[in-house]
Simulated scan of single mutants.
Amino acid sequence: MNSMYGVLGSAGCRFHDTRLASSITLRGHEIMMETGTFIEQLGFDVIYGDTDSTFVWLKNCQSLEEANTKGKMLEEQINQHWQQKISAEFDLPSLLEIEYETCFKHFFMPTLRGSDSGSKKRYAGLKETSQGHEIVFKGLESVRSDWTELARSFNKPYLKKCLANKA
């Protein structure tokens, strides 16, 4: 749906219609909201969700293996939920699929000013790999091209130090 949004939202597309792009965004939002509610009904806390991702806090995991097992279980149950729902409501097979991507051992997502919710697609996380630890940056000043070199040169090492000290 996201790729269709990009095409249909572009004035250069033969089938350009802002209503179609808006409809795709709205439906994606509804799907992720229902997915978040479903995850919470399973007893997990949803930290953040948007049109193409959901972050879940897997409390009390003692190992990466346990977290990965829970992540895969959530993937299966969410996909099964959508298969059943689409089949029951529309008598169609579901083409929706969520994929468990990664587990962050430590995670930082700044909140929006005056809010308790995370800011869209801005986070840093420490994940375990076969080569050790890897720090992932998304949307923060350390990786944004519209921020100064000074901001990037300060923020990236600072966040690395903060997350690495938690390892």
Rank of each mutant, 00 (worst) to 15 (best):
M1L: 01
N2S: 02
S3D: 12
M4L: 13
M4K: 04
V7P: 00
L8N: 01
S10L: 00
S10Q: 05
A11R: 14
C13P: 01
R14T: 10
F15P: 04
D17W: 07
R19L: 13
L20R: 13
A21Y: 05
S22Q: 13
S22T: 10
T25I: 11
R27H: 14
G28T: 11
H29D: 15
H29A: 12
I31Y: 04
M32N: 08
T35E: 03
G36S: 15
G36E: 07
F38C: 02
I39E: 04
E40P: 07
E40D: 08
E40Q: 15
E40M: 11
E40Y: 04
Q41F: 05
L42N: 01
G43Y: 06
D45S: 12
D45K: 12
D45V: 10
V46F: 06
I47H: 07
I47Y: 12
Y48Q: 14
Y48D: 10
G49W: 13
D50H: 10
T51Q: 00
D52N: 01
S53Y: 03
T54I: 14
F55R: 05
V56G: 02
W57L: 15
L58I: 06
K59V: 10
N60Y: 01
C61W: 06
S63Q: 07
L64S: 12
E65M: 04
E65Q: 15
E66N: 13
E66M: 11
A67V: 08
T69V: 08
T69L: 07
M73H: 08
M73Y: 11
L74W: 04
E75G: 00
E76M: 05
E76I: 09
E76A: 14
Q77R: 09
Q77M: 11
Q77F: 03
N79M: 01
Q80T: 15
H81G: 06
W82E: 06
Q83A: 04
Q83C: 10
K85V: 02
I86D: 07
I86P: 02
I86V: 15
S87N: 09
S87Y: 09
S87I: 07
E89G: 09
D91W: 03
D91F: 08
L92I: 02
P93N: 03
S94V: 07
L95C: 07
I98Q: 10
I98V: 15
Y100N: 09
T102V: 14
C103T: 13
F107V: 06
F108N: 01
M109A: 07
G114M: 02
S115W: 03
D116N: 10
D116S: 07
S117D: 06
G118S: 00
G118P: 02
S119H: 04
S119L: 06
S119F: 03
S119E: 13
R122G: 00
R122E: 06
A124F: 01
L126A: 01
K127N: 07
E128P: 04
S130T: 09
Q131M: 12
Q131S: 14
G132Y: 05
H133Q: 09
E134L: 03
I135E: 04
I135T: 14
V136K: 03
V136E: 14
K138E: 13
K138F: 03
K138H: 09
S142D: 11
V143M: 11
R144Q: 05
W147T: 15
T148Y: 06
E149F: 12
A151M: 12
S153Y: 08
S153L: 15
F154M: 11
N155T: 13
K156R: 11
P157Y: 02
Y158P: 00
Y158N: 10
L159K: 02
K161F: 11
L163M: 03
L163N: 05
N165R: 09
K166D: 09
